[in-house]
């Protein structure tokens, strides 16, 4: 089933409280402004060095040395849409990635949550802790969750301070960037609507296009 159909099925199960909070996100976050702020095709990706799920430091320099890099931002282990997407990415990309490419998924969660997500869903790629959203801010995909949405999360015991080690309720907008080995962004997708994601077929296509040009 295409990823967005699975996500639609999840969205159909939203409670009325969650639906109202979702509407607030859609009103508050301006997709045009976000697209303006974020890295675009042709931009140079800012370098990074972040801890992975196994407690090792992973640097973008090393990843790009291996080949094409796909960087995807997810909101956190509490987001069911993100969890479905991470699993779908694993199924779709693991066979493709063996050929000179890497995929990394970043979220601001600390305290071993990357390890928890990786082992719970048996993911084969790197999950990195974007501590204090340092990389999301440089990619221009950082937003603050609006008040109703924050209240919804709090009512479910989801609290920014515990998850991120900071109280700001800043999270990345779900987004995916394909970066050529020279560090140039060749494909960028940003989803203000967190119930929609990059349709996965576009990623192997982008990779194949890059490999053909090598």
């Amino acid at each position: 089933m295409p990823l967005n159909e699975t996500l639609d099925a999840l969205r159909a199960k939203m409670t009325s409280q969650a639906a109202a909070a979702f509407e607030e996100v859609m009103q508050r976050l301006d997709s045009r402004l976000l697209a303006d702020n974020a890295l675009k095709t042709g931009d140079v990706m800012p370098g990074f060095e972040l801890p992975n799920a196994e407690g090792k430091l992973v640097s973008s320099v090393e990843l790009l040395r291996r080949g094409v890099l796909i960087v995807t931002f997810y909101r956190g282990s509490w987001c069911p849409y993100c969890m479905v997407t991470l699993q779908a990415l694993d199924a779709m990309l693991t066979p493709v990635l063996e050929r000179k490419a890497s995929l990394v998924a970043l979220s601001p969660e600390t305290g071993g949550r990357a390890q928890f997500v990786k082992s719970k869903y048996g993911l084969h790629y790197e999950l990195l802790a974007d501590v204090d959203n340092a990389v999301a801010a440089q990619f221009g995909v950082l937003v603050r969750l609006p008040p109703r949405y924050r209240r919804l999360l709090l009512s479910r015991g989801i609290e920014a301070e515990t998850l991120h080690g900071g109280a700001g309720w800043f999270v990345p907008v779900p987004s995916t960037f394909v970066v050529a080995p020279n560090g140039i962004v060749v494909h960028a997708e940003i989803h203000v609507d967190f119930t929609r994601r990059t349709e996965l077929e576009t990623l192997p296509q982008a990779l194949r296009a890059l490999w053909q040009n090598e």
């Binding site: 972040l50 801890p51 407690g55 430091l57 305290g111 071993g112 990357a114 802790a129 501590v131």
Partner: peptide, 8 residues
């Protein structure tokens, strides 16, 4: 960063 990201 490693300390904060760690599962402990």
């Amino acid at each position: 960063k490693l300390a904060r990201a760690s599962a402990w």
